[in-house]
Every structure is written in structure tokens, then in C-alpha cells.
Deep mutational scan, measured.
Amino acid sequence: VPQRAWTVEQLRSEQLPKKDIIKFLQEHGSDSFLAEHKLLGNIKNVAKTANKDHLVTAYNHLFETKRFK
């Protein structure tokens, strides 16, 4: 089981690129989880459509539901 890579403050910070969060989610989330949160596909394309709040919610949801690969 992966550990949380970032704190809530870090997740919301401008310093953390959306692409980093997407990469983490794609590496650790199950396909059904990723599909549900519309996070499947090319990281660049996902970054265009997903806002930061959406990614933070998905990140927290992944750990709450433990839907890891």
C-alpha cells in the first residue's frame, strides 16, 4: 500500500504541479478508480481537463477507499 506523498497543504499549493498528482494517481489507483474520476489517459490531457480541487478530492478518495492497483 502506498503512503501519502503530500500533506493537504502541499496538495493545495501552487508549488505542486497537477501532473505530479495525476502521475501518482495513475501509478497507484485501480483502473476502475481512475475511470470513475476521469483520470485515465495521457497525463497532459488529463491535466488540461482536471482542476486541482478534483485531483485533491481523488487523491484523498484513493486513500479512503484503498482502491489501489
Rank of each mutant, 00 (worst) to 15 (best):
R67H: 07
K44M: 15
P2L: 05
Q26C: 05
I22D: 00
N60T: 12
H54F: 08
H28T: 12
T7V: 03
V8F: 06
T65D: 08
H37E: 04
I43K: 06
N45M: 13
K38T: 07
D20W: 05
K38C: 15
L16I: 15
I22L: 09
A58G: 02
V56E: 06
T57M: 13
K44R: 14
Q10A: 05
I22P: 00
P2K: 04
N51L: 08
K66Q: 10
P2W: 03
H54A: 10
A50E: 06
T7R: 02
S13N: 06
A50S: 11
E14K: 14
T49S: 09
L16Q: 03
H61T: 13
S32A: 11
Q3G: 06
S13V: 02
K23N: 08
E9G: 03
P17S: 09
P17N: 10
K52G: 03
A50N: 07
L11S: 02
Q26D: 01
F24Y: 09
L62I: 04
K66C: 12
H61S: 14
S13A: 04
A35R: 09
T49A: 09
Y59W: 03
H61Y: 09
N45F: 15
P17R: 11
D20R: 13
K38H: 13
E36P: 02
S32K: 09
K38M: 14
E9T: 04
V56K: 02
L25K: 00
K66G: 12
A5Q: 15
E36D: 10
G29R: 00
E9V: 04
Y59M: 02
A35F: 14
G41Y: 04
K52V: 06
L62Q: 00
L55D: 01
A47E: 15
L55K: 00
S32L: 09
W6G: 06
H54V: 10
S32E: 11
K69Y: 06
V46I: 11
Y59N: 01
K44T: 14
D31N: 13
Q10Y: 06
E64W: 10
Y59P: 00
T7D: 14
L39E: 00
A5I: 15
I43M: 10
V46P: 02
Y59E: 01
Q3I: 12
L39F: 03
F63Y: 10
L11K: 01
N51M: 08
T57D: 13
K48R: 14
K18M: 11
V1S: 08
W6V: 06
I22A: 03
H61A: 13
E27R: 10
L16P: 09
Q26I: 08
K69E: 04
G29C: 05
K69I: 06
N42W: 12
N42K: 13
K19F: 09
V46G: 03
K48L: 15
A35W: 15
K48H: 13
V1F: 13
A35Q: 10
Y59F: 04
K19H: 15
L39P: 00
D31E: 14
D53V: 06
N60G: 09
D31L: 13
T7W: 04
F63R: 02
D53R: 06
K19N: 13
A47W: 06
N51D: 14
A5D: 15
A47V: 15
H61F: 09
L11P: 01
L40Y: 11
V1T: 10
K19S: 15
I21F: 02
A47N: 07
F68C: 03
Q26H: 07
H28Q: 07
F33G: 00
K48D: 14
V46Q: 04
K52D: 03
K38R: 12
L55V: 08
K69V: 06
N60A: 08
K23D: 06
K38A: 12
D20V: 13
Q26K: 07
P2D: 04
L62D: 00
P2T: 04
V46Y: 04
K48S: 13
G41Q: 04
Q3H: 12
Q3D: 13
G29T: 01
L25G: 00
A35L: 12
L62N: 00
I43C: 09
D53T: 07
T65I: 04
K66A: 09
N42C: 15
H61N: 14
I43D: 06
G41K: 06
V56W: 03
L62M: 07
W6K: 04
N60D: 11
A58H: 02
Q3K: 14
I43W: 13
D20C: 13
I22T: 02
A47F: 06
A5W: 15
G41F: 03
L62S: 00
S13T: 03
A47M: 09
H54R: 14
K18Q: 07
Q15I: 06
Q15N: 12
V56Q: 03
T57L: 12
Q15S: 13
Q26R: 11
H61W: 08
S30Q: 10
K19P: 08
R4S: 08
L39D: 01
W6A: 05
T7P: 08
S13H: 05
K18D: 08
E9H: 03
A50Y: 07
A35C: 15
E36R: 08
R4E: 09
K38F: 12
S30M: 07
T65K: 11
P17D: 14
V8T: 14
N51F: 07
A50I: 14
L40K: 10
K38S: 11
E36T: 07
K52H: 04
K18G: 10
K66L: 09
L11C: 03
G41S: 05
E27A: 08
D53E: 14
A47I: 13
A50Q: 08
W6R: 05
L16W: 04
K69A: 08
N42G: 10
E14Y: 09
K66F: 09
P17I: 06
G29W: 01
S30R: 06
Q15L: 12
F63T: 01
Q3F: 07
F68N: 02
V8R: 03
K66S: 11
K52S: 04
L62V: 03
K38P: 01
D31F: 14
K38Q: 13
E27W: 05
L55R: 01
L55F: 06
